[in-house]
Simulated assay, not measured.
Amino acid sequence: MPAHRFSSSLSPDELKALFRGHPGGVAVITADAGDGPVALTATSVASVSAEPPLLIFSISAQSSASDVLSRAETVVVHLLDAHDIDIAKLGATGGIDRFAQSHRWSRLSSGEPVYRDVRAWVRCAVINRMDAGSSTVIAAHALQSHVERDVRAGEPGDALVYHNRTWHRLGEHSRLED
């Protein structure tokens, strides 16, 4: 529903303040629509269905990767842990070549750019795009995955989260209950 149909709405600053206190898992999304690879860091990745295996994420229209992601048929979503902080920062830094360090990445046999040695990645086919304000929500079907560092059920792992404009590591110290 268009925002103009509501009698009131939160301001952008109010929404940002609200979500600063809501941590998000960190992912880097890569794609290549034929003009060269792009990458961006996102905290909006979510699993939405196990059968079929679907996930969603959003990209801002202001992102330098938005044009390529609006045309790419496939993407690679890298699910990061604290060991991958350099990749997270790389995808979040504007105005740089995120693929200049050729030893950090390669291409899958299907052509998509993938960063090496990250906790896990999943290759996806884009199945839908939806305009959502100044962003685009992308739905993707998981096709192929690789897990470099697995987290066993119930174990704390070494998750990387973004909270209140800062990177954080989740681990045994942050567990509240068994």
Rank of each mutant, 00 (worst) to 15 (best):
S110P: 11
D32C: 07
L80M: 14
N128M: 05
L160S: 05
Q144P: 02
N164E: 03
P23M: 10
E73I: 07
R20H: 11
D178Y: 09
R152W: 13
T74D: 09
Q62N: 06
S145G: 15
S7K: 12
T41A: 04
R123L: 10
P12N: 02
S49R: 14
G94F: 04
I56W: 14
D150R: 09
S44V: 09
H146T: 10
I85Y: 02
V28I: 05
A42H: 05
G91Y: 01
H83L: 02
C124K: 07
A50W: 15
A139K: 14
H22Q: 12
D32W: 05
G94S: 06
A92I: 00
S145P: 11
N164S: 11
Q62V: 10
R20C: 04
R98D: 02
E155A: 14
F6T: 08
R98Y: 00
G157K: 02
D86E: 09
T43V: 13
S134T: 02
N128P: 01
A39N: 00
L80C: 02
S11A: 03
R175M: 09
G95N: 06
H173N: 10
G34K: 07
M130D: 12
N128T: 08
S102A: 06
L55Y: 09
V151Q: 14
E155N: 12
V38P: 13
V38N: 08
P37G: 04
T43F: 03
V114D: 01
